[in-house]
Each structure stands twice: as structure tokens, then as C-alpha cells.
Simulated scan of single mutants.
Amino acid sequence: MTGHEKALIGRPRGFDAEQALRRALMVFWEKGYDGASLADLTGAMGITKTSMYAAFGNKEQLFRKALELYTEGPASYGMQALQEPTAQAVATAFLNGTVQATTRPECPAGCLGVQGSLATGDLGRPARDALIEWRNNARLRLEERFQQAVDEGDLPRDTNTGRLARYIMTVSFGIAVQAASGITRGDLQEVADTALRSWPPA
């Protein structure tokens, strides 16, 4: 074997990092942080552990990158909903977006932000903490948007914006859990519609 041939064998195989990250996202989404083994991840990504560490860092760092991709992609409905002109339209877009995102036929059912941290042990604490922060940020953004609606006269002056944001988030995550349990998109849309009929909640 020539030196050139040895160099080719020893050279790391090139791969599409973005595509690999999308595949890792699907594994985390389906199996959660704890349930996704390194073998699961590298197998889906089509790379070795060495290449994974070199490109993305350890499992926790990979998960954080996957969560960013999830936020910018499947979960982008959350940020888009905040741009709606009224608080009720924001809540409607947020819940409708949840239904759509958690029941995509080409993706795992449910929400990465919910099942990603289920049954997470001590080793997965950083990932669980990242998801808690992720969920809390979403709630705070909703609360800020609802406060804007109060200031603009779109919501009653005595509206408890924190409670209203928690209500929408609770319904949203409940929808995600039900989606992961196999409830159909149509049935979940009825849940979202029902939750919004008494807007704003008493």
C-alpha cells in the first residue's frame, strides 16, 4: 500500500453536517435524550463517534444544537405566532401550530421540548435543564406579548398575563403529550378549538 493510499484511508470521511444534525434531531425527538444512545445517533447520522465529537461535541452539545434546529424549524410556529395582530390570534396560531407540528407524518409524534426530557436521569440533567429553560423562554415571550396586548387595549386591563401565558403553554404541551400517544390531528385540533372558545380564560 502506498503512502497516498494510507493517507486516503486515514482521512476522515466527509459528510453533510447539516443533514447529520437533522437526523440527530429526529433521533432525539423520537427517543428523548436518555433514550438516544450514541450508537443510535451516529448510526442515523451516518458518521463515527470520532466524527460526531469533532463536528458537534459531546452528546449534550449535540442535543443543544438539535434543539436550536428544532426551534428554528418545526417549532418556529411559536415565534411566528407572536407576530399576529391580536392576543387571541397569537394564542390561536400558537395552539394550531402545536397541533400541526406534533402530528407531522414525516416526523416523530409529539414535541421534542416535552418528551426530550422525560425519564431523564442524572447524566441527562444538563439536557433537562436546557429544555426547562426552553419552555420557560417560550412562556415568557407569550407573557410579554400578552402584556403588550394589555397596554394596547387589546386585552382587558386586569388580565393576568402570566396566568394566560401558562394556560396556553399548558394546553400546548398537553396537546404534544396526546399527540405522542397517538391521538389524531383532527381530535387535537378540537382540543385547541375548545380551549380558545372561552377566550380569555376566566
Rank of each mutant, 00 (worst) to 15 (best):
A165V: 11
D154M: 12
V171Q: 08
G186F: 09
T50D: 07
V90I: 15
T42P: 02
A89C: 07
A101Y: 00
R185T: 01
A109D: 11
V150T: 03
E133Q: 09
T50G: 14
G46I: 11
R135N: 11
D154I: 08
T170V: 05
E133V: 04
K59S: 07
S117I: 03
P126N: 07
E106V: 04
A202M: 13
E68V: 11
L25T: 02
T42V: 10
V177N: 05
S181W: 05
D129W: 04
A93F: 11
A91T: 02
V90E: 08
G182H: 03
S181D: 08
G35M: 10
L164Y: 05
A202P: 14
R23Y: 07
S51N: 10
F94V: 03
T42Y: 04
A36C: 12
C111S: 10
T184D: 12
G182V: 02
D129H: 07
V150K: 05
L67I: 07
R125D: 02
R139M: 10
G113Y: 09
R128G: 10
I168S: 14
A192P: 06
P85F: 06
N160M: 10
R185A: 10
R197K: 13
S181I: 00
P200Q: 06
L21D: 03
L112H: 06
F146W: 06
A101W: 00
A44G: 09
G46D: 12
G3P: 01
L21R: 09
A75R: 01
V27N: 09
S117D: 04
A180D: 08
P200E: 08
Q61Y: 05
G121A: 08
S198W: 03
A7W: 08
N160T: 06
A55L: 01
P201T: 09
P105F: 12
V90C: 14
G124S: 03
T50K: 11
D16N: 15
S51P: 01
R185Y: 04
